[in-house]
Nucleic acid binder design. Structure first.
Lengths: 194, 194
DNA sequence: GTACGATACGGAGGCTACCTCCGGTTAGCA
DNA sequence: TGCTAACCGGAGGTAGCCTCCGTATCGTAC
């Protein structure tokens, strides 16, 4: 059974992870992110294991299939984005929180291009992975959008799912020039403005 | 050397393709489209060859690498979209042509989800394939958008590239409900309206 | 209508990456 | 300090991509 996030669910009493296992798990995640960034989505797992300084059998003990490793890397990044929404809601005005979060969402989505394609193709939209990730991201988007709508600064017929696809879908394509990305965000924001 | 579109460029005098070669080429494209649609982007080429009724060596004679086959399938669909723009420009009002072409663009993009990810990951944004396809599609988008802007029915600061990414990028994700797709198009169109 | 040759075919086999198996190692608890 | 359950790791099996080369056939010329 693949672990998600970090340690497995404690449904029965069990020992916490051994120190060497914990260390290798973390090194594998870091090595996976680095290798995927530099080599691309077809990076061989043998290369990930080599960079982590472990054997291929150790990699497969922690991540029974290639997709399990990609998923673990992806979940970490999704949770980081949720944390960002909480911070903006606490510290920014309704419109600034909406605009700021969307800007960070673009940055997150852009760096996941190679990883995401392989995940989506393999597990499909109904997998727990994507359902959970969409839920976390949608919750964040809902919070920042609803707050802006309630403040009367965002159109009321926009829904969070639409928002995410309009902004995030663009970044799934090739590298965008920063000014083009800013312009596209402006079009969406102008369309959103109440 | 892989052929693109259909027969190779006639830079030097040469015989047209033999009848059996022509027949197998077409059968391979049809079998590839069917197999990719039903199995997904990880469909083995042996399965494509089997469905086409040819040997794997014949498949590789026509398409030296897997990506060559995917590319040939994709080019055919891109050219079909360009033909659609010409037809709408000749027969519809500026705004209706813009809206109609975007609707067809969404349909085209949705059916290429599995195929497109593998192509983009492998060849990158600067390949002739994607440059050519973007050119063909951008030319179509430019025509329908400029005509709407000149008619004063579309905002003047929108550019064709932004248009395509806003609409097309959404469809690269999971299957969309028809009503959601219509609503997203409405947001983009409302944002575009002059 | 037939023969010939250049083009096309096709399946066995090499190579690579995913993943498994199992003997050896070690962390941590009693 | 000893013991054991958890952990490690690399050789090897398998599937799919792609190559190679003997055989088949299309199409042209006589």
């Amino acid at each position: 059974m693949a672990t998600t996030g970090s340690a497995p669910a404690a449904s029965v009493p069990q020992r916490p992870m051994r120190a060497d296992a914990r260390r290798n798990y973390d090194r594998l995640l870091d090595a996976a992110r680095t290798t995927l960034t530099e080599v691309g989505s077809d990076a061989p797992l043998e290369e990930v294991a080599r960079r982590a300084g472990v054997g291929i059998g150790t990699l497969y003990r922690h991540f029974p299939r290639r997709l399990d490793l990609l998923e673990a890397v992806y979940r970490k990044d999704v949770e980081k984005l949720a944390t960002s929404a909480e911070r903006l809601l606490a510290a920014a005005s309704p419109w600034d929180a909406l605009e700021g979060w969307l800007t960070e969402f673009i940055g997150y989505a852009t760096t996941k291009r190679a990883l995401f394609h392989e995940l989506v193709d393999a597990v499909g939209r109904d997998s727990e992975l994507l359902t959970y990730s969409r839920q976390v991201i949608t919750t964040s988007a809902t919070s920042v959008l609803a707050r802006a709508q309630e403040a009367g600064v965002a159109r009321r017929d926009a829904e969070p799912g639409d928002l995410l696809r309009l902004v995030g879908g663009c970044t799934m394509m090739a590298d965008l020039e920063p000014d083009q990305q800013a312009r596209m965000l402006r079009i969406v924001l102008d369309g959103l403005r109440a």
